[in-house]
Simulated assay, not measured.
Amino acid sequence: MVKSFIMFLFTFSLSAAWAGQVTVQDVLGRDVTFNAPAQRVIVGFYPEDYMAIGTEAAYDKVVGMSKYIWQARSANWDMYVKHRPSLDDIPGIGRVDTQTFSVEKVISLNPDVLMLADWQFKGLATDIERLESAGIKVVVVDYNAQTLERHIKSTELIGVITGQEKRAAKIAAEYKATVDSISKRLADANLPKPKVYTEFGASGIQELGFTFGKNMWGAISTMAGGDNISAPFVEWWGKLNPEQVIASNPDIVVITGYETGKGTDSMIMGQGVDATEARKRLAGYKDRLGWSSISAVKNNRLYSAYHGACRTILDAAMIQFYAKAMYPEVFSDLNPEQAYMDFYKKYLPVTPEGTFVLAL
């Protein structure tokens, strides 16, 4: 009888150990099996999304992080660290894009799951085999593509990793509802598509900054009903010839920015940024060489957005922003900045203060 009881306990313990095992298909169609919710996670990218979807408690299980993408938004990072000081103690793992990503550091942290962005996974190439041979499960997510499919899939994957499937489903459904509503209203209005140009304004007025083709702001502007002038010339991101911008004659210009830039004329937006200063810097772009002939400048249709508010599940508000900028009569009821703040109030433990969208 004792032997039977011991066997029962062994069988029960074995079953319990494997009770949380799941197999997911990540955004690249790779089947990944791990125990969920994961108990030791490294967050390679999308740190705010991980908290919004997984809740703040998800960071109790984060043992490593590629911190630079969060710390690049220094005011945002400081806001979170002030609320949760332990974030600052999470070990860093380096960057894929600067070849400082440390496979050895990742292995030493003994994670169950390493969550990577699509571009990180591809950049690591054969290092992925080293990580997987060490028993680390690699799950690939992707908000950079700015497609509805990948936004939803990535949100669902984070929900599984953190054990917050219901919360993830709710957030994904709300995002889809925003996209579907804008698409329907555009179809009903059936208006000509305005030409739109988006530029990351960190370099300031004198130097043309990066623009976007079929991802990030390029995809957002297209999703919101615009004709992205950069798409024929830039696949992902890059710089247009200055003459090409003028020749394309955009109806709408959006200059994005972080809280800091390279100089005093850089576009700044975000946490702690005063709207008067941001508007002053945006107005400076009207004086850029050759831009006086552009329709957007002639008609004062220059706008700015927070660069940290794209490639994230939070960017439904930015789709609203572009839609309203391009079709003000159709979307006069939308309040994109309020929508952005409301997401924080609903799903995150902090709420930023500053300037996140702007019209000249």
Rank of each mutant, 00 (worst) to 15 (best):
V138L: 06
D89Y: 13
G135S: 02
W119G: 01
S102G: 02
R95Y: 09
D112P: 00
R95Q: 15
K105N: 09
P111W: 08
L109K: 01
R84I: 12
T100H: 03
D89F: 12
V106H: 00
L109S: 01
V140G: 04
S133Y: 03
V138T: 10
T126C: 06
E132Q: 14
T100S: 13
D118W: 10
E104L: 03
D112C: 00
D112W: 00
V96T: 10
A117F: 07
V138Y: 01
T98N: 14
L87R: 11
P111Q: 08
D97T: 04
I107Y: 00
V81R: 14
V138K: 02
D118C: 02
P91I: 11
V139W: 03
K122W: 10
R130I: 09
A125F: 05
G92A: 13
M115P: 00
K105D: 05
M115A: 10
R130Q: 11
H83E: 15
P111L: 08
L109V: 04
A117T: 05
R84W: 15
L87Q: 11
V106K: 00
Q120P: 06
S102T: 01
D88C: 07
I90N: 12
F101C: 03
T100K: 02
D89R: 15
I93H: 03
I107F: 01
W119D: 07
V106Q: 00
G94C: 07
K82H: 12
I90D: 14
K105F: 01
Y80P: 07
T126P: 11
R130A: 13
P111R: 09
S86P: 04
G123R: 03
S102Q: 02
I136Q: 04
I93R: 03
S86W: 11
L131T: 08
W119E: 05
K82S: 14
Q120I: 10
I93P: 06
E104V: 02
G92S: 15
V96Y: 01
I136R: 05
L124F: 09
S86N: 14
R130D: 10
M115V: 14
A125V: 04
L131F: 04
M115W: 02
D97Y: 03
P91T: 12
S133D: 15
V140E: 05
E129M: 09
N110Q: 12
D89K: 15
G94H: 07
K105E: 10
I90F: 14
K137T: 05
D88Q: 14
E129N: 12
A134N: 04
T100A: 07
K122A: 12
T126G: 10
R130T: 13
K82Q: 15
